[in-house]
Amino acid sequence: MGAGHGHRLFFHGHSVVHRAPAHLKLVALVVFMLLVVATPHAWWAAFGGYLLVLLAVIAVSRVPVTYIVRRMVVEVPFVLFAILMPFISTGPRIDVLGVSVSEPGLIAAGGFLAKATLGVIASLTLASTTEPVDLLRGLRTLRMPDQIVQIMSFMIRYLDVVTDEMRRMVVGMRSRGCDPRSPRHWPALARTLGALFIRSYERGERVHLAMLARGYDGTMPASDR
């Protein structure tokens, strides 16, 4: 991967967190999140502690907190679900601000929201401090099957190529008066996606031939920087 091709969430830096081996970061993330998920709902102090740990890691990594916060929008659908949870749950009802809600539902919603938020912050911290190349190397160190790592490396490599190709096609459609969101134009959209599949597949075939021409024998050569 050439220079300047960090993925969208990567925040360039040279802190201890950035330089830490990726496999250690991955193990830390999984262990941390299993701990968070195994924590009972009403242990609010524990969730506060976890948040402090994450904030400390973010502070050391020098990634601005606003950078993380702005990217937390992926969580919005679950926040909506969590708000709904106290109303549809079973158990004894209590009044909150004059509205009758289920007490266990309220606690479960709070716990779920805390865990999901911690999960999103922890994942964002990993994504903003780890370059894809290092992540792939980390997964390989952790004995992830080589085929999976290879497929993943191709996906990361060609992500921008293929999404840009699709964006150009959609721009072309829009400039001809087609609205891809409207079901009326789905046939046109589907032909576009069909063409995108054929182009992606043929690109894969070309890449494979190019790899064979350069001596590919089923394993990827180790990439050193």
């Binding site: 992500l159 690109r203 075939e205 494979h208």
Partner: peptide, 24 residues
């Protein structure tokens, strides 16, 4: 066969790109 890695990688990328299109 041995085309698995590049082809599955590109098909995965295609699936990801297709998922970006939202429908109401």
């Amino acid at each position: 066969d041995d085309r698995t890695a590049p082809l599955a990688g590109l098909v995965a990328t295609f699936v990801f790109a297709a998922q970006m299109i939202n429908f109401p």
